[in-house]
Nucleic acid binder design. Structure first.
Length: 416
RNA sequence: GCGGGUGUAGCUCAGUUGGUUAGAGCACCGGUUUGUGGUACCGGGGGUCGCGGGUUCAAAUCUCGUCACUCGCCCCA
């Protein structure tokens, strides 16, 4: 491979198969979420940088080291979106949709994060996601999670993933907790891992899901977040869990599930897998009640999730069902026009037809075989003289002579 | 951002202690006469051995750098 021309690190070309897989995932989520009342929406791929800086948290990893930010020709600071929620919420505010609550959106598209690429982790990756705004009631949490659960189920990967769930409480409770947690951890400064010492300064919550053995043993006796939750948050969490049980959705309460974005509160959840190395989350989300207000809109609650399309594809065994397909073969260039005309007529009947561009009968049959055509229609001078065509079943080799006026009906009959 | 592994035809890989025109399978193209594919046989195209520098009479093979992929960490979908 002479790689003078290569795609930028962490970006991929999506060739046929990739696009079929991509569309497969998007179509499933689109259809399922529509059944829950979510409607499609698309927001721009880039936004003013503040849209993300203000919402994701100035100290979050995404903002501090992963954003693709640049100045455009008008000196505006622009960022390629690293996630979908902030843009959707901004769009609601920009378009004055705060009156139309509840607002239920489904979206998909590319996201950008400057990270070290790995399997299932790219710099340009793609997400599908839903957002439900305007409902504080736990019914929203349950509905949103149930939708994700159904996606997992229909992708047939429920055995490969587990739903983890936790409640982060509100911001004030969490602040109190973080302070106590940090105070506790400061007693173990000499035992904590290097990474965790840094986290202790920047974001002590993150130490909770550390993979270091030492950290884990220290955390065992640390103060617990759920003991800091106010009664409303506790009650809400309890109702969410009951709602899931009511729907027979299996979950694991994971008290150490803390998410990287500052805007989350109360319910957070992740469908995680152990099949993708370091990349465990395939669908993840949570509640973000303060986000809209923080962005300058009304005080409207929200909850949603996003799924990584590439990760979902990696986990699924996707079989794309191929439509029945026909190859039309003229024998002799002089019969091209009549064949091409027949091809058009069949296509107008919504039948998938190809006519190869060159070659004799043998080559064209070979080509038909390569295209996995179900039937070949062969028309040469001999057939035209009889006002007929040969229809060959390429699986069985069976071949019939059909008169031209009847051929479209005949093809429709054998295909459907 | 940190640490490890890998990089030879479109794909999967061989390539001996550095030594003459770099190989295989699959795929692709053509042929095995004239209007019949999927099997078989024969033939062909395609690689400046990721890229750049260094060591050497000589480098795919050693060395350094760089790019990309990959594994772990960080973090995340």
């Amino acid at each position: 491979m002479n790689n003078k021309l290569q795609a930028v690190r962490g970006t991929h070309d999506h060739l046929h198969i990739d696009m079929y897989n991509y569309n497969y995932i998007v179509n499933i989520v689109s259809r399922i979420s529509a059944n829950y009342g979510f409607k499609p929406i698309a927001t721009p791929i880039f936004e003013f940088s503040n849209v993300f800086k203000r919402t994701l948290g100035e100290s979050s990893d995404i903002v501090t080291k992963e954003m693709y930010t640049f100045k455009d020709k008008a000196e505006e600071e622009i960022t390629l979106r690293p996630e979908g929620t902030a843009g959707v919420v901004r769009a609601i505010i920009s378009n004055g949709l705060a009156q139309e609550m509840p607002f239920k959106a489904f979206y998909h598209g590319p996201m950008f994060r400057y990270e070290r690429p790995q399997k299932g982790r790219l710099r340009q990756f793609h997400q599908v996601g839903i957002e439900l705004l305007g409902v504080k009631k736990e019914q929203a949490d349950v509905e949103v999670i149930a939708c994700a659960n159904q996606v997992i189920k229909e992708l047939n990967i429920q055995k490969l993933s587990k739903l983890n769930i936790n409640s982060l409480g509100n911001i004030d409770d969490r602040k109190k907790y973080i302070k106590d947690l940090a105070d506790y951890l400061k007693n173990y400064k000499n035992k904590l891992s290097k990474d965790s010492l840094i986290r202790l300064e920047k974001n002590p919550l993150r130490i909770l899901d550390s993979k270091s053995e030492d950290d884990i043993s220290i955390i065992k006796n640390a103060p617990r977040l759920n003991e800091y939750l106010n009664s409303a948050s506790r009650e809400n969490f309890k109702l969410v869990l009951e709602g899931l049980e009511n729907l027979n959705i299996k979950y694991i309460i994971n008290e150490n599930l803390v998410r990287g974005l500052d805007y989350y509160n109360d319910t957070t959840f992740e469908f995680i897998t152990d099949k993708l190395g370091s990349q465990s989350a395939i669908i993840a989300g949570g509640r973000y009640d303060g986000l809209m207000k923080q962005m300058g809109g009304s005080d409207i609650p929200g909850i949603g999730w996003a799924g990584g399309i590439e990760r979902l594809v990696l986990l699924s065994t996707i079989k794309t069902v191929k439509n029945k397909h026909i190859s039309i073969i003229p024998v002799g260039e002089e019969n091209n026009n009549i064949c091409f005309d027949l091809a058009q007529k069949l296509r107008e009947k919504n039948i998938s037809v190809e006519m190869s561009y060159s070659g004799n009968l043998k080559k064209r049959l070979k080509n038909a075989n390569k295209l996995a055509s179900n039937y070949a229609i062969i028309i040469g001078t001999e057939e035209i003289n009889n006002n007929s065509a040969l229809v060959r079943n390429l699986e069985t080799g069976e071949q019939n002579k059909i008169t031209l006026p009847k051929i479209i009906k005949y093809i429709e009959k054998i295909l459907f």
